[in-house]
Design a protein around this nucleic acid. Sequence first.
DNA 1: TAAATTTCTAAGCATTTGCTTAGTTATGGT
DNA 2: ACCATAACTAAGCAAATGCTTAGAAATTTA
Lengths: 187, 187
Amino acid sequence: MARKKAYIEEQVIEKAMNLFWRNGYESTSVRMLENEMGINQFSIYASFGSKQGVFKESIKCYKGKLKELVNDMEASHGKAAIKAYFYAFNNFAKQNIGQGGCLINNTFSELGTNAPEEVMTEMMAFVNELKAVFQKKLRDDDATSSHDYLAKQASFLLVAIQGMVVASKVMANSEIENFVEMTFSSL
Amino acid sequence: MARKKAYIEEQVIEKAMNLFWRNGYESTSVRMLENEMGINQFSIYASFGSKQGVFKESIKCYKGKLKELVNDMEASHGKAAIKAYFYAFNNFAKQNIGQGGCLINNTFSELGTNAPEEVMTEMMAFVNELKAVFQKKLRDDDATSSHDYLAKQASFLLVAIQGMVVASKVMANSEIENFVEMTFSSL
DNA sequence: TAAATTTCTAAGCATTTGCTTAGTTATGGT
DNA sequence: ACCATAACTAAGCAAATGCTTAGAAATTTA
């Protein structure tokens, strides 16, 4: 009769995600993952197949975290919802010391075109979903503008939020807040 | 009598810089540098001391390249100069396949707080210099606003340009252009 | 108590990594 | 032709890397 599973994959993946978030992909060895996840290398390979497999699951876990923030935005109304998301996302991005920022952005930066197909797909999907939600919230406040016009505004906010999360690593919080305020005052 | 140096350090460093720009730091091995630079590992260590030494020089080389763009901006006038710099920088950032983007941004993302002190200093200095030039060009068009007000606008543009260069890896050129136009229309 | 399965431990593998060493070749000046 | 130096080639080193294997221990159920 089988021994019960002693670790929950979602829990160990969350630990792995945090390590990748702090260190990046290449600078995170399997031995470090073993320490952080609290399971041995054999179990890592048995459950996830490879280091890359762990990373793929980590990206999905990260998306799940972001989904909670996006859900909060979807439950709110208009531009104010997007703005609140900016702040919430900034706070979320600052949870980690070291590299921190946005794991999706970091992964684009570090791996670029070398990222595994599945990872690229997950990340692009997230970016597109976020843009769609921005557009929907913009529509809340503006029933008459064209779809194309709102798409451009959503796209603008998408670039802006990427700038915010990258800049927040090296710039003062007051400068980030100034950026957000100016970004939304222009809409 | 000494044999003349057969390679020019600045030239081999430029090749190294391009490789780091495409690949990032960790994913670039010394053997890859050897191939790209066209000199052997012994010469690399003799001239630069370590892989990190090559990287430090590469960052300086990259700054030198950016300096040319900044000089162009300084030779022009007002907000139009800054806007032209955005476009020039975007074109410059797109020279490299793979990771591309901005090597300074990439390095902040990849190495974060683990970057060598000298590299951090060089990068922070560049960011501060850029902000100062932005502020100066904003003053060209606005003789009366407070120093603090213009500093905030310069800071805003600094975050914006970081967003642009990160986003340009994954978003369409038309969306990047839209972002730049919207950013400057709000100033 | 035994069986079945999970998870662990320890060791190992081939390769890659940053870096060093020693001897050789190339080159320019005298 | 010789000397001095630069740069190369080849080999090597220890450590790290991603991953595998084999046997042992742990755990649950019947």
